[in-house]
Write a protein that binds this DNA or RNA. Structure first.
Lengths: 338, 338
DNA sequence: TTGTAAGCGTTATCAA
DNA sequence: TTGATAACGCTTACAA
């Protein structure tokens, strides 16, 4: 009833008030002033529930991410927010740590009009149906994948990321150049495609260098500090322990370094450690962590732009957009011992 | 038009479909089956835009926090999410780093029906008007303050937090017990009441111990690693440098430790460092960081519960809810040198 | 137990 | 440039 009140007070129709709100230039100045006064007097605020309903748009974007509190997301979110602000979207965050991992649970947010689109920054399990329904409208919600590598079922969605395989190869090559031959790998969660790709890159680089990879050298770090610490202990307990460890992300690398030092060993003298992501704690780690950086803010920005395009149907090609990574050499890596 | 389609297909009225959706027990089983079949066949998903509009409720809560990517928020958000899930709310996140800091900008989200309530986990500047309008309806949106200390203008809102003053006193007392007399303090941002309170606690403890506090010992660390590094350098450059540094949070403590070690000094041999929050990186810092922990998950949970109460009007008293803090002694603090 | 129909606040179409 | 009015999809009295 609210716009009506304003209209009545201003002595105009509701249509005019609405126009004043949405395209003031269509309203004569004199009328505009009347409406403005009425709005001020009533303290009227447009009911966005009604507005959204009428427009069929929520102006909400769901960003699905692994965990709030992940320092890497800091910059990514900054990029996302910049574009969201510019385009008039609000951000709804879903954390896969606290929520479900089902693809359909997120796409339903779009189909039920709770959100206009989805920005997926985490690995989730697409329903098998999704693949078969590919031509179905339900399989094509506005959705963009950022950061994450893409499973086959999701490959028809736009995606923005670095080439995790190539990046991990670069990191591994660097260790190999330093003379390391026994290189361990601390992997992420089993369902994370991104860390799987990094593992692939590691394996590929080892293979190309004709270096054997023992199964014992690849341990799961669960993408947490504690998981990485346990993984590191297993690596250290090996009869022939690795002289270098590649961690699928910095969070785990930090845990690994701590555990290595705890065991009375020195980084990089005894063991070199390399991470991935270049989170802000990498630089101030002791020793400062060698890592691979991603253009986080740009990934956020670009994936959000792609999503806006997907929402208003102007999305062009769906080829993955690859951004460059960058090896950052610090002090946690050194020549292989002996 | 969608519920109509379903109704038509099922051969019932739209009211029956609606009832099936909202209170199935009121629908005869036979009818229920028909409706269910129709829903399945059409792939119907209720339009929550229309539903929210009709109900006058968004089921959205805005959580205003300083920065996604702050590891401390990890646990807080977990607590919030647990309650939100349970109560059927979705979480809309606003980051003051990327967004405005104005109180009204957030409360407008409620008045314009974009959200049902606000959980404030960050210091923002309330409009001066807010205080004078206190009796006005507009001054009383459902809003709860979590973590943060409360400015006078906001003191009529419920609040859940630790006693930052007392906690900082405990930390400072501990340093004093270790024999430290020249204790520096790295403060947070100027507008952060929470870190201001911690500074107050530090000052109070110093005063009670009859220890002088030089103005040079209190430097601003901007609540970032880099800010803390700059602040630390200033402290180290002092003619008589402090033998201990209290940092208003762990993030800054990590930066401080790095800078101290960079200067060729040892923690805690030359300088003790103590932080606040007990983020997950504190334990694996080198040396592991002595800090004060807050019951983060519980703060999240309780503040969210209070908010739910505020939304449905069942909120009782508005006295701040204080939770206990806990001094965690690790290796970054030791006896004063000399 | 089910159907009819009004109404939520806004926007958009059309006519004036 | 403005006004009257239908429509958006759903819920909920109220009536049947």
């Amino acid at each position: 009833m609210s716009i009506k009140k304003v209209a009545k007070l201003a002595g105009v129709s509701t249509a005019t008030v609405s126009r004043y709100l949405n395209s003031p230039e269509q309203v004569k100045e004199k009328t505009r002033n009347k409406v403005q006064a009425a709005i001020r007097e009533t303290g009227y605020a447009p009911n966005s529930l009604a507005r959204n309903f009428r427009r069929g748009k929520t102006s909400l974007i769901v960003v699905v991410l692994p965990a709030v509190g992940d320092p890497f997301l800091d910059k990514v979110m900054r990029g996302i927010w910049r574009v969201a602000d510019e385009q008039g979207y609000s951000i709804l965050i879903r954390d896969t740590q606290a929520n479900s991992h089902e693809f359909d649970e997120y796409t339903d947010l779009v189909f039920s009009k709770q959100a206009d689109g989805i920005l997926l920054l985490a690995s989730i399990s697409p329903f098998d149906e999704a693949a078969s329904n590919r031509d179905n409208e339900r399989a094509h919600p506005p959705l963009v994948l950022g950061l994450e590598s893409v499973s086959a079922e999701l490959s028809h969605f736009p995606s923005v990321r670095v080439d995790n395989i190539a990046a991990a190869m670069d990191g591994t090559d660097y260790l190999i150049q330093l003379g390391h031959q026994r290189i361990g790998f601390i992997a992420g969660k089993r369902d994370s495609l991104l860390t799987k790709d990094r593992e692939k890159g590691y394996r590929k680089a080892m293979r190309q260098a004709k270096l054997a990879v023992s199964n014992d050298w690849i341990v799961e770090g669960e993408q947490t500090i504690d998981g990485a610490r346990r993984a590191t202990r297993r690596l250290l307990d090996l009869e022939q322990r690795p002289t270098a460890i590649f961690c699928a992300n910095d969070e785990m690398a930090l845990g690994a370094m701590h555990e290595i030092k705890n065991a009375g060993l020195k980084v990089p003298r005894d063991i070199s450690v390399i991470g991935f992501d270049d989170i802000r704690y990498a630089e101030i780690a002791d020793p400062p962590l060698t890592t691979i950086s991603q253009p986080a803010e740009e990934i956020g920005e670009r994936s959000m732009r792609r999503l806006c395009q997907a929402i208003d149907g102007s999305d062009g090609d769906s080829a993955p957009e690859m951004l460059p990574h960058n090896l950052i050499v610090r002090k946690s890596t050194g020549k292989a011992p002996g």
